[in-house]
Amino acid sequence: MKDYVLEIRSLIGSRPFIIVGATVIVENEEGGVLFQFRADTKEWGLPGGAMEPGESLLETAERELWEETGLHAERMDHIETFSGKRFYFRYPNGDEVYNVIAVYKAFGVSGGGGGKAQGDETLDLHYFTELPEAIDVRAKEIMERVRGAGNGE
């Protein structure tokens, strides 16, 4: 992800661009949802990220789950795809994006010693039964709409 996004950023600077990616909802047996404390925004978000050239959305979801949590899923079901002005985001460094996010639910999750991040994007991992207070706006929107049976745009 970083190489492709950095290449685009070198051409357009911080201006907004459309970025396609995938997010994964992982639930434990108690109904808690796995959130990652993100290094870039210092907020709790759902594991996920941008699609690499040539990847499918499912491959993106699988790769991002592994990179950010150290977990693998036996199966992932596509729940919904979200987009539109509510998925605009400005990163702390000023980079702007309009996200198109395919949301998957993971089943048969294993590995990672209980979910230990593989890279430097994740500072902590935790299962929450209620939405965390310091939550990324995109993750909040996704969870509220998925749990409330809302529709994507």
Score class of each variant (00 low, 15 high):
4 Y>K: 03
5 V>H: 10
5 V>F: 07
8 I>G: 03
9 R>N: 11
10 S>H: 13
11 L>E: 05
11 L>S: 12
13 G>E: 09
14 S>E: 14
16 P>K: 10
17 F>T: 08
17 F>S: 09
18 I>C: 14
19 I>T: 13
19 I>Y: 12
21 G>N: 10
21 G>V: 08
22 A>P: 02
25 I>K: 01
28 N>I: 12
28 N>Y: 01
29 E>P: 11
34 L>D: 03
39 A>Y: 01
41 T>M: 04
43 E>C: 03
44 W>E: 05
44 W>M: 07
45 G>W: 14
45 G>M: 14
46 L>C: 13
48 G>P: 04
48 G>A: 07
50 A>Q: 03
50 A>I: 03
51 M>L: 09
52 E>C: 11
53 P>H: 07
53 P>Q: 07
56 S>Y: 13
56 S>D: 04
58 L>A: 10
58 L>P: 08
58 L>D: 10
61 A>T: 06
61 A>L: 02
62 E>R: 11
64 E>P: 02
64 E>N: 02
65 L>I: 00
67 E>I: 04
67 E>C: 04
70 G>S: 00
73 A>F: 02
75 R>H: 09
75 R>C: 06
79 I>G: 05
87 F>T: 05
87 F>Y: 06
91 Y>P: 03
95 D>I: 06
95 D>G: 00
98 Y>P: 06
98 Y>F: 15
98 Y>Q: 14
100 V>Y: 04
105 K>D: 09
108 G>M: 11
109 V>R: 06
110 S>G: 15
112 G>Y: 01
112 G>K: 04
123 L>P: 01
127 Y>K: 02
130 E>K: 13
131 L>D: 02
132 P>T: 07
134 A>E: 11
136 D>K: 09
137 V>K: 15
137 V>L: 15
142 I>V: 10
143 M>R: 00
145 R>C: 03
150 G>I: 09
152 G>H: 09
